[in-house]
């Protein structure tokens, strides 16, 4: 039953709208080029007129699935210049608050809904907790057991806002490990 259904389903891809975000550009040309780049990379996106309060650049914006913000930014960077990515409602910037909890031999960094834990003596990542996006269990397998300085960056390998939060936790952990930030 599953296999026959799967074949049919792959031919007729489901609707994909999630909570939406807008990529804002300086020029119409950049917006149109970005649409081509993202569609070629498999993203669902469409050109729209940004609402008046979000009209920072040109009169054309690209509507995307906001949860994929991390992957969209990575795909556009170096190819098309854009001013920023913003949710269609609510806070305009992702949360940037990290909380640090110290255990006897480990340090836990919380960033949004994500937590990263490393061994204070070795700098090895020992656990990742929290989050709900499907790239987080994948990033768990990639990061846990690796050294902070050698770990792949979630912003490079993940795709979602959970990955962005995890990247911020990793960044803070690196600061602590290098002695730049107080722990």
């Amino acid at each position: 039953m599953v296999l026959s259904w799967l074949k049919k389903s792959l031919e007729a891809r489901a609707g994909t709208a999630v909570a939406r975000g807008l990529v804002i550009f300086t020029t119409v040309e950049e917006a149109m080029k970005a649409e081509k780049v993202l569609k070629k990379a498999g993203f669902d996106c469409k050109l729209v007129a940004p609402p008046p309060d979000m009209r920072k650049g040109c009169d054309l914006a690209l509507e995307i699935d906001l949860v994929e913000q991390t992957a969209v930014a990575r795909t556009l960077t170096g190819r098309v210049s854009f001013m920023g990515i913003y949710p269609c409602k609510g806070e305009m910037e992702p949360l940037q608050v990290e909380k640090v909890t110290r255990f006897a031999e480990h340090v836990m960094i919380k960033s949004g809904n994500m937590k990263l834990v490393f061994d204070i003596k070795t700098g090895v990542i020992v656990n990742i907790s929290g989050g709900g996006c499907p790239d987080i269990p994948y990033l768990y397998t990639r990061l846990v057991g690796t050294h902070l300085a050698a770990a792949p960056r979630p912003r490079d390998e993940g795709r979602t806002l959970c990955a962005l939060m995890l990247d911020r936790a990793l960044e803070k952990a690196l600061e602590i490990w290098k002695g730049v930030a107080p722990n």
């Binding site: 939406r20 906001l66 949710p87 609510g90 806070e91 949360l95 608050v97 962005l164 939060m165």
Partner: peptide, 16 residues
Amino acid sequence: DPEAVHPAYISRHLFE
């Protein structure tokens, strides 16, 4: 948070 579409976009004061 009625406006937040993902935990990454909750209000700072709510998270803190």
